[in-house]
Nucleic acid binder design. Structure first.
Length: 511
RNA sequence: GUCCCCUUCGUCUAGUGGUUAGGACUCGGGAUUUUCAUUCCCGCAACAGGGGUUCGACUCCCCUAGGGGACGCCA
């Protein structure tokens, strides 16, 4: 087996909407497999549906792929030895091969009208027969074909399906048998001259030398059709791998109803791409060592299609029960955030990824969210203080957008929460706050290591210690009962800001 | 309707005839952190149901239920 061909996989989306979780996961598995086997990963755009395909979807999909880090070796724009990589630019190729099939009597022109077909289908169904094409145009004579061509402008090309049993050997599904007589002569070229999916996919995959087809199990029942075409051309079948589908929390296949499955939504909320990639890799696959937090490189090194499972996995990072009638896919990332499960595995993974990002990368990625929050004054945007604040806050974040919950506290925002107020209502609070205020005023070197002694000194002056001391000072100077380690927090806040807040708190304490 | 596929803790999953059915996220409890988060420890929690086969079934077979997919001039 030493001279095995290099692995070539592909992702072949149709540009009829944004890239969603299901598609992205398929892309990911193809990518991972290609990379794991040191092969190539190809991107092909399947835009043969003239009515539904559009450029905007195409561009958005490509953008999402790039964001996820699923870089392809050949594809549109990028090029490669087997282009073009958009089906709409390959029309001549499909025509050529279709003609070949016709010449070899493996395909034929069909002139049946939609109405006729529809009526027949109903009839067959009523009789309990499988709703397949009856083969009316299958054995038309040459002169009849010519005559019909004159009469009817539109025709399709159908593939002559044999009646044999077709066996699909699948890396994930195992051996699956299909009875071809239940399939019938399907259309390979539509009346607009465009190829149908089952035909185009085979021509392209063969010409592009794709030797591993990894896709959702929804395509399994298409596979016998495709195998039949491979055989008609005498082409070598690829290795098939039909992985489980991803479903929503209602156990139905992921669709627009489940909303917000667009990859862009997660980018907009500030999930690092590696965390989303990590999460998706765990849907239908698991690493042999069981450690789920992984870098892309680690995933690649452990990935194998054989470890993919057949049962559907649920994508449940949104709480649909509180969404009640709300169309999540209509929401912007700002509104969408409310429906996120606070404690999903995605969040956990993402928190871990954020914490292991390099400082530069973290800071750089964070800036748009800081700006968007509108809580940081212009002059501080590039400052050292902001940088230090962001770095200390890192441990709290599951996705970068969450910074807006914390960042304001370090600038002009100052509210005293109920909890904090109850500390300030304690007997010792006023005196302690005042004496702490005085000590802070006197301080001339405001930095982290000098703050603890000041807190303790205020405590000993007022004879307060332990929790009472720390929590009161925390409440008075931050307005909250939670947050960073107190000296760190106060150092980050800066002396002037602390003084001002202490004064505000004293006002709040006084009747 | 016909054909194909699926069903292990709430969720993601490990598991291929003999396991106290393992891990992760969540949840509960505890320790550390004079707060929160982090970290660590402990705990709750599952083989869809029913029949077989077998000395022995989560694992193999059949049936039922539930779910998904295909049967398109959608991909």
């Amino acid at each position: 087996m030493s001279n095995e061909k290099p692995v070539r996989t592909r992702f072949a989306p149709s540009p009829t909407g944004y890239l969603h979780v299901g598609g992205a996961r398929t892309a990911l598995f193809n990518y991972l497999y290609a990379r794991a086997k040191k092969g190539s990963f190809i991107l092909r755009i399947e835009d043969t549906d003239q009515a539904r395909s559009d450029k905007k979807s195409r561009d958005q999909m490509i953008e999402s792929m790039i964001w996820l880090g699923l870089d392809w070796d050949e594809g549109p724009e990028k090029g490669g030895a087997f282009g073009p990589y958009s089906q709409s630019e390959r029309l001549d190729i499909y025509k050529e091969y279709a003609q070949k099939l016709i010449d070899e009597k493996k395909a034929y022109l069909c002139f049946c009208s939609n109405e006729e077909l529809e009526a027949k289908k109903k009839q067959r169904e009523a009789m309990g027969l499988p709703p397949v094409y009856d083969g009316k145009c299958r054995s038309l004579e040459e002169d009849e074909i010519e005559k019909k061509r004159q009469e009817t402008p539109n025709h399709v090309i159908r593939f002559k399906m044999s009646k044999e049993e077709i066996i699909v050997q699948d890396k994930v599904q195992g051996v699956v048998k299909f009875d071809s007589s239940l399939i019938g002569d399907f259309i390979i070229v539509k009346s607009d001259g465009f190829p149908s999916y089952n035909y185009a996919v085979v021509v392209d995959d063969n010409l592009m030398q794709i030797n591993h087809v990894i896709r959702g199990v929804g395509h399994l029942s298409n596979t016998p059709r495709q195998i039949a075409i491979y055989r008609a051309f005498n082409w070598e079948e690829p290795v098939w791998a039909h992985v489980s589908e991803i479903v929503g929390s209602d156990h139905k296949k992921l669709s627009k109803r489940h909303g917000a499955t667009a990859i862009t939504s997660f980018r907009e909320m500030g999930f690092p791409p590696e965390s989303f990639l990590n999460y998706m890799s765990l849907l239908g696959w698991s690493p042999p060592d069981g450690v789920e937090f992984m870098t892309k490189e680690k995933i690649i090194s452990q990935f194998d299609i054989e470890r993919c499972n057949k049962s559907p996995s649920m994508f449940d990072v949104f709480d649909l029960s509180i969404a009640d009638g709300v169309e999540l896919s209509d929401l912007n990332h700002f509104e969408l955030e409310k429906y996120l499960f606070a404690k999903s595995k995605l969040n956990w993974l993402s928190n871990n990824h954020i914490r292991s990002l390099s400082e530069e990368r973290y800071l750089k990625d964070m800036m748009p969210f800081v700006k968007e929050s509108g809580q940081v004054p212009e002059e501080e945007i590039d400052g050292e203080r902001l940088k230090n604040i962001l770095l200390s806050l890192r441990v709290y974040l599951d996705y970068l957008m969450q910074i807006e919950k914390y960042i304001g506290d370090f600038f002009n925002k100052f509210d005293i929460t109920e909890d904090a107020l109850s500390w300030l209502k304690k007997e010792h609070a006023l005196k302690l706050t005042e004496s702490f205020l005085n000590l802070v005023k006197d301080n001339s070197d405001w930095k982290e290591e000098n703050i603890m002694p000041i807190i303790k000194e205020a405590g000993s002056i007022c004879e307060v210690k332990g929790k009472d001391l720390f929590m009161t000072i925390r409440a008075a100077s931050t307005g909250k009962t939670t947050g960073l380690e107190l000296p760190v927090y106060l150092a980050l806040l800066g002396k002037e800001r602390v003084l001002k807040r202490l004064e505000n708190s004293i006002d709040a304490i006084r009747p």
